[in-house]
Amino acid sequence: MSAQSIGALSGDSFVAPLEVAYPYKRTVGTTLSRFFNSMIEGRLEGTRGSDGKVYCPPAEFDPITGAALTEWVTVGDEGTVSTWAWQSEPQPDQPLDRPFAWALITLDGADVPMLHAVDAGSIDRIGTGTRVKVRWAADRTGGITDIACFDLLEGARA
């Protein structure tokens, strides 16, 4: 094959790589923008659904009725793990460079959990009911990674 060839013979068939990449952007709209802006200020806000449940991260539209959600609730920066999985070998671009837990965390004042990382140190220090607290990133830009991860609270294991 010449250096200019775009393909290679694989058995009886030519096969060529196809890498499609160009920049997109994502507009979150005015409702969800409030959530991302509040995180820059080190505060977590959620929306209250038609059944009274508080979503954080917020739902733009009610999952049950479809109504646009407009009632905002500030929730706590501490919460409770409902379930989790252990990342024993962290990959590049993941929140932590040492073993950690992915966890569904229901923040105090919220009813629906969010997915984030917990810097638990070892697998035997996390479980359902573990209490955790937000560790804010030093430089916050309005993204879910403004939460660097969650730390265990003292006496965290329920």
């Binding site: 507009t27 005015t30 409702t31 969800l32 733009e60 539209f61 479809g66 646009a68």
Partner: peptide, 26 residues
Amino acid sequence: CRADVSIAGLVREAVDRALADARISI
């Protein structure tokens, strides 16, 4: 550029107007 709405909000704007035009609810 409808920077004021997400894709979901854009879709919803048309849906709300169609339902209102038909005078029905979802």
